[in-house]
Design a protein around this nucleic acid. Structure first.
Lengths: 175, 175
DNA sequence: GTCTATACCCGGATAGAC
DNA sequence: GTCTATCCGGGTATAGAC
C-alpha cells in the first residue's frame, strides 16, 4: 500500500499556508526551504521535522490547488455548462498563476497527493461531456493550452483571448 | 532598433549544435555552461567569447526549433490540412521533448530570436484556417495542451491520445 | 580563443545539541 | 520542535594571463 498523504498536523498546515503565500507572492524560485523558513520565523532545518523533503510541501500545495479548482468547477458546471467551466478554469489560472504552473507543469507526484483530488477536479468536465473521455481530454488540453500560453505571454499583444476561448468552447460543445 | 540575433560564426554554430545535443540527450538541467563546455572539450569561461550569456544560447536553440517546426508544417499543411498539421506538431514534440519544452514554456526571449521565425512557424496553421486568427489561436492552444500534457505524463495510462487528437482536430475543422 | 583562478550566489539536506 | 554548524552540490559570470 502506498503511504500517500497522511493528514497534516496543525503546524504542518501552517507551513503549507505560508508556502502558498510565498509561492503566489514571489514565484517558484522564491519557494526555497530557506526563504520559507524565513517567512515562518524559523530556520530551514526545522522544516524537516514536519516534512521529509521539499517535494512533500509542493505536493501539498498541488493537492490544495486541485481541491480549490474542483470546488470552483462543481459550482460552475451545473449552472454554466461548458462555458461556465471554461470561465472558472481561466479565472483560477489568472488569479493563481504560480500555483497553476506548479500544478500543471512537469510530472505529477501522484504518490504524494491527497488521494482522489486529481479525479475530483477532472469529474465535472467529464460529466458535462456526458462521460465522453476522449472529448474531455481534448477539451482539457485546449483549456490548459489557453491558460498556460496566456500566463506565459505567448499570444500577440492585441489578441482577443476571450474570443479564442469562446471559439474553442463552442467547438467542443458542438463536436 | 533592437539588435536581435546577428549571424553566428562557425564556432558559435558548433556550440549551438552541441548545446542542442546535450539538451536533447540529458534534459534542461544538464544544459549548464559547465556541462556544455565539457562536451565541447573546453572550459566554461571560453564560451563567453562566443555568447554574451546563457540566454543567447537558449534563444539560438529556440530559433532553430521554430525553423524546424515551420519546415515540417510547410510540407504537412498543403497535403494534409489540419489533420496533417496536427500530426506534424505531435511528432515534433514527441521526437524532441526537451527542445519542445524549451521552445514553449515560460516567456519567449523575442528580442534574441532570429527575426520572423515565430511568425513563420505560425503561418501554416493560420493559412489552413483561412486567416481566422481567433480560431487559429484556439487550435494552437489545443495542440500545445495535448503535446505538453502527453510529454508530462498527465493523461491516464490507458488514454487513447490519438483519438483525443482526432476529436480536437475535428472540432476545429468543422467549427 | 583558450586557459586558470576565482568571486559570488544559490540550493537541499543532515548531525547533534538543547 | 527548534537551534547552530556544516556538508556537498550546483550555477552564472568575470579578470587577466597566454
Amino acid at each position: 500500500m502506498a503511504s500517500s498523504a497522511p493528514e497534516l498536523s496543525r503546524r504542518a498546515r501552517e507551513i503549507v499556508d505560508t508556502a502558498r503565500a510565498l509561492l503566489e507572492d514571489e514565484g517558484p524560485d522564491a519557494l526555497s526551504m530557506r526563504r520559507l523558513a524565513e517567512r515562518l520565523g524559523i530556520r530551514a532545518p526545522s522544516i524537516y521535522k514536519h516534512f521529509a523533503d521539499k517535494r512533500e510541501i509542493e505536493a501539498a500545495l498541488i493537492s490544495v490547488g486541485f481541491e480549490e479548482i474542483a470546488e470552483a468547477f462543481e459550482g460552475a458546471g451545473r449552472r454554466g455548462g461548458l462555458l461556465g467551466l471554461g470561465r472558472a478554469y481561466r479565472r483560477f489560472a489568472l488569479e493563481h498563476p504560480h500555483l497553476y504552473r506548479l500544478m500543471t507543469s512537469g510530472p505529477l507526484p501522484r504518490e504524494l497527493l491527497t488521494p482522489g483530488v486529481e479525479d475530483r477536479a477532472a469529474l465535472p468536465l467529464l460529466d458535462t461531456l456526458e462521460g465522453d473521455a476522449d472529448r474531455a481530454r481534448a477539451a482539457w488540453a485546449f483549456a490548459h493550452g489557453m491558460a498556460i500560453l496566456e500566463l506565459d505571454g505567448r499570444f500577440p499583444p492585441g489578441a482577443d483571448l476571450a474570443e479564442a476561448w469562446r471559439r474553442g468552447i463552442a467547438a467542443f460543445a458542438d463536436g
